[in-house]
Design a protein around this nucleic acid. Structure first.
Length: 847
RNA sequence: GCGGAUGUGGCGUAAUUGGUAGCCGCGCAAGACUUAGGAUCUUGUGCCUCAGGGCGUGGGGGUUCGAGUCCCUUCAUCCGCACCA
């Protein structure tokens, strides 16, 4: 995953994944593969803009400087990127195509029958819409587009005058940048209809080689749930309240209903007597943040509307309440409450003394619990046998059925009676796709004064950002782009007036498709050459942090599927294999009062840590690297002290790539020692000879080649390095190896420590670079063993070792063991009861 | 609460996937070389030990000739999600 080039430069966490793919890239090249290993910059984003507000420096200047720093640092690490393919999301030659994709989204609708996106030109307009004229047709078309413009409720930070993404709002409802409370606000926004692709996004997860945890997180985020929608009529009116439930089987236990405070029927059904309390409650709800509303520690709240609904199966009158535990954005924004069999409804019913009617005899051995459930004193959400669940007059009876058959029986009945229908719901919501910022891709959109939205012709892309005097956002929720009237105001040839869209796209936009542009980064005619796309896609290996588990990886998959439906790309999924590298933590030190101390001011003595100047004792903690903890490790410092190869090697030697692990400079010293010893040994002519190679060295060499190649294939770089260390220890003991062996070992080391390996390659008298030398092939004949040192155990306890030819027949083992003088002690004069012999593994004697 | 993962020496970790627990590295100890060592090299290093051995992979139980690995149970830590009906 490409980085956001921050002003702070790289920390040692960045090169972890980069080194891993670099090793694989170099190794695969040696194996003869054509490798696409590129790098670029996800360079739109808020920090450069905040800096512009403070200093007036144009974000492009800040961005360029930051990219220069990142590029320099990455080059110093020796990452073998193809720099001809470098891309930058802020480059007009790049974001022109981001805008192009937006236009594609705008001009696409989702065909539910074919389950794919199609151009809006292919959208059938229903005759009754057609008959209503152009405006109706336009509205209908807009309601189908994957990108649409509408009112949306967004987080707003009044202190920064800026809209915040959900992830920028902390748990206590404050803005992470300034600490002030954010509020909800209605603004006209661009949204993308990602939920249309929910099912496709779920299905695709089954086809990719991704970590199970990430796939599960995406499934949870998409949040498919199957159930039914059921209509409840309001007593004394012809209004109907539709609810969504995953448990239609508990309909007989529905003793009240709850609407979300924002539900459109609330006003209509609230009786005059209840108007004040309902109004007050709605007002109070609006003031609460979403986070307050979902806080489980808080008691449930709600008020009665004064109206009753009719339970469609039992015919009984049940009260209708409003409560903020029912969310407006999910399902129908209304529920039937079954307190006996839903924990949330149970809590609510207890608090407001509502009826709790048990309709299921629980499957449990706990008789106290069972009786409590039957009395309505406890809540039961699992399986059992239905009771009180029949209404002969309506022809429905599910008594004595279990949960699974109960759900299907009652759903079929509901559909037959036209009271409801089977329904699948998703948690996934429309994606809020615009931000009130300057430093992002401008939307290629004009809003004409008559309300029409016009998309700029794609031949006129890119639409560039205007130059600004000030980057401060407007007071009213307008983007800083509103400060550029010459840019914003447009007049058509026929005199029609309009304004350009002043929102910009979120940072996700550029990163949603960057992997595609690497295929053909300089193409000015099209987004990429389709032939090249077919050649390279899908991405064979995508390495990045788990923090992008949902957002980036879900958004990318969504865009990719739309592009696939439109025939722009040739694969349904973009990333065949995903690997998450673990986070690198670092030691931090703090004084008794909690003040943080940088590592260079810490002295270690007898396992304790002291401040170098004050001498006071410090506490060592392991934590994520951050400025506030003063524990950020800069790769520049590591390179200055130990060299780039040591940095690379330690990044990989620390532990498994997927593990979270703490950075420890002592560990860098370990791999530095290994590289130094390698250099001293191989570069010393006294250690090299031209004769035949010692068979033990040959065997060790070929074992090492085998181990390193299988480890690279499995992304287990830590054990590959360990194998090379073992080989060095062996040849150091042998004191002399052939020049040939030294060269082959150098090639094995090359993907990990390319700088040192090149140096050794030349010292060994080889021509040119080793970068394109073929990877050494394993000669199996050197690996064949004829004897094996068997561990001999008695009752599973290892007692001694016994070297035997590998072709020793099993029948002879007993004799050999009995004949061994060491056996007597463990046999204790008895014959072995049983001998377990596993060829080439172990011998175990049961006494 | 739900979901995912992880628990192995003083530390980072390894273990042919049911077959010798602790490879490799750090640290530590002793020694060599040295004016010197935060350089280099050698040796040792899980714990206990009456020196024969015993005990050891978070705890308890089980399967097996044999368990870090499989099963049951329990505890702890980390990461996600969280009133989604």
């Amino acid at each position: 995953m490409f980085p956001y080039p921050s002003g702070a430069g790289l920390h040692v966490g960045h090169p972890e994944g980069y080194t891993a793919t670099d090793i694989i890239g170099r190794y695969k090249r040696m194996k003869g593969y054509n490798v696409l290993h590129p790098m670029g910059w996800d360079a739109f984003g808020l920090p450069a803009e905040q800096y512009a507000i403070q200093t007036g420096t144009h974000p492009s200047v800040t961005t360029r400087n930051n990219c220069d720093t990142f590029r320099r640092q990455i080059k110093e690490i020796g990452l073998s990127y193809d720099w001809d393919r470098e891309i930058n999301t802020t480059d007009p030659g790049y974001f022109r195509w981001t805008q192009w994709i937006f236009i594609r989204l705008y001009n696409t609708w989702f065909d539910e029958n074919l389950r794919k996106g199609r151009p809006v030109e292919e959208l059938d307009i229903p005759p009754d819409i057609e008959a209503q004229g152009n405006a109706a047709v336009r509205e209908y078309t807009n309601s189908k587009r994957l990108a649409y413009y509408d009112h949306a409720s967004v987080w707003w930070c009044p202190s920064c005058s800026i809209v915040c993404a959900n992830e920028e709002v902390l748990t206590d409802g404050s803005h992470e940048k300034c600490g002030n409370q954010v509020m909800k606000r209605q603004l006209k926004q661009w949204l993308l209809r990602i939920p249309h692709y929910a099912e496709r996004l779920l299905e695709g997860l089954e086809t990719v080689d991704w970590p199970e945890g990430i796939r599960e997180m995406q499934r949870n985020w998409i949040g498919r749930s199957d159930g039914a929608e059921v209509d409840f009529s309001v007593s004394g009116s012809n209004l109907k309240i539709r609810v969504f439930t995953t448990r239609p089987d508990t309909l007989f236990g529905a003793t009240y209903m709850v609407l979300a405070p924002e539900h459109h029927l609330v006003e209509k059904i609230t009786t005059r007597e209840c108007r004040k309390q309902v109004g007050d409650y709605i007002k109070a709800t609006m003031l609460k943040s979403d986070l307050d509303r979902t806080d489980l520690a808080k008691e449930k709240t709600g008020v009665f509307t004064g109206s009753y609904a009719i339970n469609p199966v039992s015919g009984s009158k049940i009260p209708v309440w409003i409560a903020d535990y029912v969310l407006t954005g999910y399902g129908t924004g209304a529920i039937m409450a079954v307190p006996a069999h839903d924990t949330r409804d149970f809590e609510f019913a207890k608090k407001f003394s509502l009826e709790i009617k048990c309709i299921m005899d629980p499957d449990t051995d706990n008789s106290t619990l069972r009786e409590a459930v039957l009395r309505g004193d406890e809540c039961w959400t699992e399986d059992g046998k239905y009771i009180n669940s029949a209404n002969p007059a309506k022809g429905i009876d599910i008594n004595s059925l279990n949960l699974q058959t109960g759900i299907s029986t009652i759903t079929q009945w509901l559909e037959k009676e036209r009271l409801g229908e089977h329904k699948t719901n998703y948690k996934l919501r429309d994606w809020l796709f615009s931000r009130q910022r300057y430093w992002g891709e401008p939307f290629p959109v004009i809003h004409w004064d008559d309300g029409e939205i016009e998309i700029i012709d794609e031949n006129n892309l890119p639409l560039l950002l205007p130059e600004l005097e000030k980057y401060q956002p407007g007071e009213t929720g307008e983007s800083p782009l509103a400060n550029a009237p010459d840019w914003v105001n447009v007049t058509s040839r026929d005199g029609r007036r309009g304004r350009r869209e002043t929102n910009t796209m979120p940072q996700w936009a550029g990163s949603c498709w960057y992997y595609l542009r690497f295929i053909d980064p300089k193409n000015n005619e099209r987004i990429f050459d389709p032939e090249k796309e077919k050649y390279w896609m899908p991405v064979d290996l995508y390495v990045g942090g788990a923090e992008h588990a949902v957002l980036h990886l879900l958004y990318s998959r969504f865009w990719h599927k739309v592009l696939f439906d439109l025939g722009v790309v040739s694969t349904d999924e973009p990333f065949s294999r995903l690997f998450n590298q673990g986070m690198i933590l670092a030691f931090a030190y703090e004084t008794a009062t909690g003040a943080k101390v940088t590592a260079d001011q810490v002295t270690e003595k007898d396992g304790k840590y002291y401040h170098s100047e004050t001498g006071s004792e410090l506490r060592q903690i392991v934590a994520k690297m951050s400025k506030s903890l003063k524990n950020v490790v800069n790769p520049d410092d590591v390179i200055n002290r130990y060299g780039a190869d040591s940095l690379r090697l330690y990044e990989m030697f620390m532990g498994p790539l997927e593990a979270t692990k703490p950075w420890d400079e002592k560990g860098v010293k370990g791999v530095f020692n290994f590289l130094s010893r390698t250099f001293r040994f191989v570069s010393n002519p006294a250690n090299l000879h031209e004769g035949g190679e010692d068979p033990e060295v040959l065997k060790a060499l070929h074992q090492t080649i085998r181990k390193v190649e299988t480890d690279i294939d499995n992304m287990r770089f830590n054990t590959a390095i360990s194998a090379m260390m073992i080989f060095l220890n062996i040849i150091t003991r042998k004191e002399k190896i052939t020049r040939e062996t030294a060269s082959l070992f150098t090639l094995v080391l090359a993907p990990f420590a390319p700088h040192l390996a090149e140096e050794l390659w030349q010292i060994l008298g080889n021509a040119g670079t080793l970068a394109y030398e073929p990877w050494p092939s394993v000669n199996e004949t050197y690996l064949i063993e004829d004897t094996y040192e068997y561990p001999v155990s008695f009752n599973g306890r290892l007692r001694f070792h016994l070297p035997l030819p590998l072709d020793t027949p099993e029948e002879e083992i007993g004799k050999i063991i009995s004949a061994d003088p060491r056996s007597g002690k463990w046999l204790g004069g008895n014959p072995p009861r049983k001998i377990v012999f596993v060829k080439g593994r172990i011998i175990n004697i049961v006494v």
